[in-house]
């Protein structure tokens, strides 16, 4: 049987430390937030409800759900599609074919074309980010101003000395996704295809100190993700389930639904 990758996030274990999101940024060389694009392939939705002392705070990690019925793939107008379902069930993206029309970003129920300030407070997020047409990616690293003139190095200088863009660039060792994307294309979580193809776990899974993220093949009953899914059958939740996207990211929590 072919593989069907999926991820379970155990919200009992998740402490909201953000190690996953940081690990993802390091692993995939994603940029800082700019132009309404978070460039956070792994992000959080945060919610505070109620009035003190009766308050309730929810922090839920979000990422591309690698939907089985993926609207982003359905709308991609390019032949062959630039956003596509891989044989292993993940939703992958081909930069060479992407023309940057942003229809995927528009169609994905978990994405926004432009994020507003509320996204800084975790009120919204976007799993697909867009690299603006005609604007160099990693543009912050072209800056020649020194923070303390005559004392600190400028961003451009660091790049020059380190010989990478970004300076700490992580080169992918397998897979065919570009470790640093170009202008005029979208980008999103690829379930760390370049690591998983090598038998490793996605960066966010590796980084989680609470072992709240469980990744694996849902078609293999012996895999960790299948076991977690089976053990929590009754309470398993998926984000925006009613959109009909059939997400392959599952949330585990026995009380209250964090996804609504």
């Amino acid at each position: 049987m072919s593989k069907k990758y999926g991820m379970a996030i155990d919200l009992h274990k998740c402490v909201g430390c953000g190690a996953c999101a940081l690990a993802c940024k390091n692993e995939n060389n994603t940029e800082a937030r700019s132009d309404g694009q978070s460039h956070n392939w792994a992000d959080f939705v945060m919610k505070t409800e109620g009035v003190f002392p009766k308050t309730r705070y929810t922090q839920m990690p979000v990422l591309c759900n690698h939907c089985s019925e993926a609207p982003c793939v359905m709308v991609c107008p390019v032949t062959p599609k630039a956003m596509f379902k891989a044989a292993d069930g993940s939703t992958l993206h081909n930069q060479g074919r992407c023309i940057g029309c942003r229809q995927c970003q528009d169609a994905c129920p978990y994405s926004e074309l432009v994020l507003d300030d509320a996204s800084n407070r975790g009120e919204n997020s976007s799993v697909i980010s867009f690299n603006l047409h005609g604007k160099k990616t990693q543009s912050a690293w072209y800056d020649k101003t020194e923070l303390i003139p005559g004392c600190t190095a400028s961003a451009a200088e660091v790049v020059q000395k380190a010989g990478g863009l970004p300076p700490d660039v992580n080169q992918f060792k397998s897979g065919d996704y570009q470790p640093v994307r170009k202008a005029g294309v979208v980008e999103k979580c690829i379930f760390c295809q370049h690591k998983v193809a090598n038998g490793e776990q996605p960066a966010c899974v590796e980084a989680c100190p609470a072992e709240a993220r469980i990744f694996g093949d849902q078609n293999d009953a012996a895999s960790n993700v299948s076991k977690v899914k089976a053990a929590n059958k009754k309470t398993l939740m998926r984000y925006k389930e009613d959109e009909g996207t059939e997400p392959n990211v599952f949330y585990v929590r026995s009380y209250g639904d964090p996804t609504v």
């Binding site: 023309i99 940057g100 029309c101 942003r102 229809q103 074309l113 603006l132 047409h133 005609g134 005029g184």
Partner: peptide
């Protein structure tokens, strides 16, 4: 201002 046409 979506710039989709720029890409297309």
């Amino acid at each position: 201002g979506c710039t989709g046409c720029v890409g297309l």
